[in-house]
C-alpha cells in the first residue's frame, strides 16, 4: 500500500505482527529445539537453548528404523500424485479446450466426490483391502490417495489450463506447426507451471494424510503420519526422540509449503478465491 505511514506506527505494527507470528510458530520451533536436547533436558522444564546433541536423530534411526517410514511417505505421496496427474491432465485439458454443455456439471460432480467423508467408506475399503491382501501395502495406499486427491488435481489443472488462450493454438496452426511442434513449443511451456503447482500441493496433501494411512497400514507400508501416530503410547523417556522424528517428518513439507502459498489458496478453494 502506498499510504504514508509514520515510522513509529510501522514499528508498532511490526512488533505486534512478529509477536503473533512467533506465538503461532512456537510449537514447531519448540519441537525443533527439543530434538537437539537430551531426553533429560527435554523434561527438565522450559529452556530454549538445547545442548545441540544429535543423539535423538541417531536413535530414531537405530531404534525405529526411521528410514523405512520416510521412504514409504516419499513413495506414497509422489506415487499417488503422479498417477493422479497422468489421469487428470488429459481430462482437465479436454474440459478446458473442448468444453461441452455438461463440462461444468462434471466438474461440480467431481468436486462433490471430495465431500464424501472418508469414514463413510471405511468399512468397505477396509474389507476390500483385507480380502485382497492389500492391507499394509504401499500399492493400496497409492491407489486410495490417488483417488482421494483426483478431484482436486483435475480442478486445479482445469483452472490453470483455462487461462491458456485458445487463440495461440490457432495461430500456431496457421503458421503451419505440426501437432508435435504445437505441443512441445506452445502448449508445454504454458502448461508446465500449472502442472508443477498442482504436483507440489498434492504431494503436500498426500504426505500429511492421516486417516487412510493409519487405517490401512501397520508396519511395512506405514508412512510417517502412521509411524508418528504410533508414538502416542510411549514407553520411558521419548520426547527428544519424538521431536527428532517430528522435525524430520515436517521439514521437507514445510519448505515445500512455503513455496506454494499461492497455489494453496487456489487449490484448496477450488478457484473460489484468487
Amino acid at each position: 500500500m502506498a499510504r504514508a505511514v509514520s515510522r513509529n506506527t510501522r514499528i508498532g505494527w511490526t512488533i505486534a505482527a512478529w509477536f503473533v507470528a512467533l506465538l503461532i510458530f512456537f510449537p514447531i520451533l519448540y519441537a525443533i529445539i527439543t530434538s537437539f536436547k537430551t531426553e533429560q533436558e527435554a523434561i527438565a522444564g522450559f529452556d530454549l537453548i538445547p545442548s545441540f546433541t544429535l543423539d535423538s536423530y541417531r536413535e530414531v534411526q537405530s531404534q525405529y528404523n526411521y528410514f523405512r517410514p520416510f521412504m514409504n511417505s516419499v513413495v506414497i505421496a509422489v506415487g499417488s500424485t503422479v498417477l493422479a496427474l497422468i489421469v487428470a491432465i488429459p481430462a482437465a485439458w479436454a474440459m478446458a479446450f473442448s468444453p461441452t454443455k455438461r463440462t461444468k456439471d462434471i466438474l461440480m460432480w467431481m468436486l462433490s466426490t471430495k465431500m464424501m467423508p472418508a469414514v463413510a467408506v471405511l468399512v468397505p475399503i477396509y474389507l476390500i483391502f483385507l480380502r485382497t491382501g492389500m492391507l499394509d501395502t504401499r500399492t493400496g495406499l497409492v491407489i486410495v490417495l490417488m483417488l482421494m486427491n483426483l478431484p482436486i488435481v483435475v480442478w486445479m489443472l482445469y483452472t490453470y489450463f483455462r487461462e491458456i488462450p485458445g487463440e495461440i493454438l490457432e495461430a500456431a496452426r496457421m503458421d503451419g506447426a505440426t501437432l508435435g511442434q504445437e505441443i512441445v513449443h506452445v502448449l508445454a511451456p504454458m502448461a508446465v507451471p500449472g502442472i508443477a503447482s498442482t504436483l507440489l500441493l498434492n504431494i503436500i496433501l498426500a504426505w500429511n494424510e492421516a486417516f487412510w494411512t493409519i487405517q490401512l497400514t501397520t508396519t511395512n507400508a506405514a508412512p510417517l503420519s502412521a509411524f508418528i501416530a504410533s508414538f502416542s503410547s510411549p514407553q520411558g523417556l521419548f520426547w527428544a526422540k519424538l521431536s527428532a522424528a517430528s522435525t524430520l517428518a515436517i521439514a521437507p513439507i514445510l519448505i515445500m509449503g512455503w513455496f506454494s502459498q499461492k497455489q494453496l489458496v487456489r487449490g484448496l478453494t477450488f478457484g473460489a478465491v484468487k
Binding site: 503473533v20 519424538l242 517428518a249
Partner: peptide, 21 residues
C-alpha cells in the same frame, strides 16, 4: 511463520501439543 502450522501433519501437531505444550 504464520502459515507453517498448516503443513504439519495431524499426528505430529497433536503430539507436539500433547507432550510439549
Amino acid at each position: 511463520l504464520v502459515i507453517s502450522p498448516f503443513f504439519v501433519m495431524p499426528p505430529v501437531a497433536a503430539l507436539i501439543w500433547k507432550n510439549m505444550i
